[in-house]
Amino acid sequence: MEIVLDPPHGAGPVRLGMTAGEARAALASLGPLAPGGELAVDLPTGLRISVGFGVAGPTAQRVNAIELFRPDEDAGVVVRFRDVAVFGESAERVVAGLRRHTRVDEDDEACGFVAPELLLALSLDDERFASVLVARPGYYDTPAQAAARDEPGY
């Protein structure tokens, strides 16, 4: 199985901006939905995909983030951005591969790295990435930045 990260549009069948119903159907196309209140799918390979929703403004009740958690080793799952498999290599190699395509900054607060132009965020766990987040533009904005983004002519 291969899941392609396509920031700022989505990951695999899940697209940013989907309604909850659309996201539920997209996740269900991959496997049974996870029990509980979170909209997610846990695949037998260990890969977990969950979605988050906006709470206010134009993103209210729409998917504004998709997070994928590292599958089991040798599970036959590839999660990639262009030619870079984000879970298959050391974090150092993944960051070097991503930097061939975009700027990647270290993010001490999140214990990982962020590609700000893409809104692709990766969290570290023992020299490898544990998860990758694809988010809508403005996801990490402060309230002042969000207000400026909403102004005409932005």
Score class of each variant (00 low, 15 high):
1 M>L: 12
2 E>Q: 09
5 L>R: 00
8 P>T: 03
18 M>V: 00
19 T>A: 13
19 T>R: 14
20 A>Y: 15
29 S>Y: 09
31 G>W: 03
34 A>G: 07
34 A>P: 08
49 I>T: 05
52 G>D: 14
53 F>I: 12
56 A>L: 14
56 A>N: 10
58 P>G: 03
60 A>W: 03
61 Q>R: 15
61 Q>P: 08
64 N>D: 15
66 I>H: 01
70 R>A: 02
71 P>V: 01
72 D>G: 15
72 D>K: 15
73 E>C: 02
77 V>H: 00
80 R>I: 00
85 A>L: 08
90 S>H: 09
96 A>T: 00
98 L>E: 14
98 L>V: 11
98 L>Q: 07
101 H>Q: 10
101 H>Y: 15
105 D>K: 11
105 D>Q: 13
106 E>Y: 13
112 G>Y: 14
115 A>D: 12
117 E>A: 15
120 L>Q: 06
125 D>M: 09
125 D>F: 09
126 D>G: 12
129 F>Q: 01
129 F>H: 00
131 S>V: 00
131 S>L: 11
132 V>W: 05
132 V>K: 06
135 A>M: 06
138 G>W: 00
139 Y>Q: 02
142 T>V: 03
142 T>H: 01
143 P>G: 05
146 A>V: 01
149 R>Q: 09
150 D>N: 12
151 E>K: 11
152 P>S: 08
